[in-house]
Structure formats: structure tokens, C-alpha cells
Nucleic acid binder design. Structure first.
Lengths: 215, 215
DNA sequence: TAGATTGTTAATCGATTAACAATC
DNA sequence: TAGATTGTTAATCGATTAACAATC
């Protein structure tokens, strides 16, 4: 088995992807690690190490082929593989995410939205119908969905999580600012936007640049 | 000058905050570093180190006073200091963020929303009015706002950024999945939700747990 | 007191950076 | 060829973990 890419490297890859996309749009055939490094204000050796960790090889003297490298990153990061998910909680944020177009480019597809509010059930968010949460169990089984995006209010997050797990969900992208209790085999990724802002704002008040540009 | 807290420690603090809030709600007077560590699946020494870095001291034999520690974290992370910001781009995500209630608890206040779409100008999002972007320059000066939350479509992000900087904005929380070019003295924090999902999903496919629970 | 927990010093680990040979 | 850039090994740096004394 090939060695797993280090998490810090993995987190920088989407940045490289953005840069290589922009370079490609400007008609640049090749891009050097030094150029990428300058844009992100990091070390160029690190860029090369990260790229090497994805298995892509550049051309000495010229750099990395933008088109090839872009496609390699899409492959490595799985943009072409559809990742199906259910979204639970049709509040403001939930609706925004359900409508958000940018996910498709990365291969994330929200199949359906769930909520408990009778007023919301049956309405369409973009092309997605809102179902009652009671239907989630069946639909998880039927559609074999493993991932849930959790956008319910904090106070319901843990109870809904128990229900998601009972229904067979194996991974939760959690937007509620709470620590969810889950069994060993369930993966949670927290996405506390407010907390992210707090980190940003603390660095700001200390006049420090965050070393990790993204995520 | 006291030493800056390491960024990894800083990123864990909101987690500690959530946990200590939950402990306080359950009526627990004290919480130990081992308990926090177990919940987050990290080392207890690290928890103590992180807490020490904020300047808070616990009580040997009993642990950390939940009420005191919670308040200390609020202080350290600046929850009580209002951080005013303008939001630029009244699309789905922008509207969701403008309406989002959870920011206030952390001290973030969105003063106004800006957009270029004539249909949107003048409408209210919650209690915030939508202004034309042309008014941003004046309002930045008048209200002395330094922070902008950028939620415009990717293709406009760079141009809007130039305009924000001309207007005097010093920090940008960027939700557009692009690398913004900014001068040295302007701080950008990228919040590419889709990229975050990609990282999550890659770890998922490798059946790895992410070491950083939050952010 | 004994036991539990903090705070801190030392050891380890892994990521970043520096140096440089290989390549075209 | 000379020069630029990659790929890789070695050195450094900083974060994590282990060990343990101090404390109540």
C-alpha cells in the first residue's frame, strides 16, 4: 500500500488546484513550484514535496504541465467520483448549501434534504425535495448513502446524529458548533464557521498571517 | 510581549470551549484535561499545554473550573469584543451568513450587506439592509470597518477584492474558491467549503480519522 | 495520607526548510 | 553548453507525546 499523504499536504492541494486552474486559463503551459510557492507564500521545496506525494512528476527545467497537473489533481482529489450525500436541516445555511453550485465541480452531490418542520416538507430547494426526517432511514438504505451534511440547530444536533447513525450514516459533515458523540466507525468532520472566524480574528488581532492559507 | 499561541493550539480552543460549555450545562463544576482529551481523541498533555498557552491555570487534583475556564476562553478568543464586518455578495451563501445567528455569540457582527444586483438593493436580510457596492467605499470610511466577508461568485472575487482594498478593507474572509491577490498588509482567510469537503472525503476514502477535529 | 490531577521538562516524531545532485 | 527547475537527502524546527515532580 502506498503511503498516505500527510494531512497538511492534503490541505494545500486545493490551493494548488486553484492556482493551476488560473494559470491554465491565462494560457500558461507550465507552472513552476517556485511560482506556486510565491503565490501562497510558502517554501518551494514544500510545493514539490506535496506534488510528489500525489504521485505527479514534473519536467526539470520547465516545471509542471498545467493541463496534465490539473487533471492529475482532479483525479487524486476524486473530483470525478460522485460523492452522494443527504443534507439534514433546511434552515438558512442548509438551503444555501443545497443550492450551492460549487459543490458539483468537486463531485459532491446532495441527493435530498431532510427537515422536521411540516411547512418545509415537500417544497423544492433547487431540484431537491425536502423530506421529513422520518423518511431518512428508508432512503439511506434504499439509496445506500453514507454521508450526511448536518445543518440543524445546535440543540438538536446530537439527537439527530444518533438517528443518522441508526439509519446507517457513516460520515457526518457537521456545521453545528458542538462536539458530536459518535461510535468509533463513524467519521465526523466539524465545520464550525464561527470558530473559524474566531481563529482568523485572533490571528488578525495579533497581526499574524495564518500559515495555512486554506481550510 | 507574551509568546503567541501556536496555530494548532489556537484551532483546538473552540473545541475545548464547546466541551466546557456542555460540561457546564450538565452541572459539572470541574473538568479534567483527560476528560477533554478523551472526547477529542487527543493527548491529555496537549490539552494541558494548550490551556497553559492561554494563561489559564487549573487546580491540581480537581481539574479546571468549568465556569471560570469558559469565561477565560471567551476572553482569550475575544467573544466579548465585537468584531464588525461588511458582507459582500448577497447570493444564497451570503444571505445565509447574514442571517446566521451563531456569529453573534462569538462577537462577529455583520453591519451591512453589499451587492451589485439592482433587484437586491434596498431589501432587508434580517435587520441588515443591502446596499449597492458603490456605497461601500464611503461606508468603510464612515464606520471604520476593517473586515469584509466575501461571498461573491468566483469570477468576480478578484475584482471585488481590488475594490475592497481601495476602500480600506484590511482583512477578507473569502468564501470564493480562488486565490486572491492582495498586498502585504491585507490578510486573507480562505473558507473554501467545497475544498474542505474534498479533504474530508479523501480522508474518508482512506478510512483515516482527521487529527484536527475542528477547522 | 494516598491518589488524582496539574504543570513542566525531556524525548520523540513529523513537517518544514536547506542543500544539492540529476535532468533537460 | 549553461541555466533553470525538478527530485531527494540531510538538517532544522516545532508540535506532540512521555515521564515525572509538584500540588492539593
Amino acid at each position: 500500500m502506498t503511503k498516505n499523504i500527510p494531512v497538511p499536504s492534503l490541505k494545500r492541494l486545493p490551493n494548488y488546484y486553484h492556482i493551476v486552474c488560473q494559470a491554465l486559463e491565462s494560457g500558461e503551459k507550465f507552472i513552476s513550484s517556485a511560482t506556486i510557492a510565491r503565490i501562497l507564500d510558502i517554501d518551494d521545496t514544500q510545493v514539490r514535496k506535496d506534488i510528489a506525494a500525489t504521485g505527479y512528476v514534473g519536467k526539470p527545467k520547465v516545471g509542471f504541465d498545467t493541463k496534465e497537473f490539473k487533471e492529475h489533481l482532479e483525479d487524486f482529489l476524486g473530483f470525478n467520483k460522485t460523492k452522494e450525500a443527504f443534507l439534514v436541516g433546511a434552515g438558512n445555511l442548509g438551503i444555501a448549501l443545497a443550492k450551492y453550485d460549487g459543490f458539483r465541480k468537486y463531485g459532491l452531490e446532495i441527493l435530498a434534504v431532510f427537515d422536521n418542520d411540516p411547512h418545509k416538507i415537500g417544497i423544492k430547494i433547487g431540484k431537491k425535495e425536502v423530506f421529513p426526517i422520518s423518511k431518512l432511514h428508508d432512503l439511506v438504505k434504499r439509496m445506500k448513502v453514507q454521508v450526511a451534511i448536518l445543518t440543524v440547530p445546535s440543540e438538536f444536533a446530537q439527537d439527530v446524529t444518533y438517528f443518522l447513525i441508526e439509519s446507517g450514516i457513516k460520515a457526518i459533515w457537521n456545521f453545528a458548533p458542538v462536539n458530536l458523540k459518535v461510535p468509533e466507525d463513524v467519521l465526523v468532520r466539524n465545520q464550525d464557521l464561527a470558530a473559524n472566524f474566531v481563529v482568523f480574528s485572533t490571528l488578525l488581532s495579533e497581526k499574524r498571517r495564518s500559515p495555512d492559507t486554506l481550510i
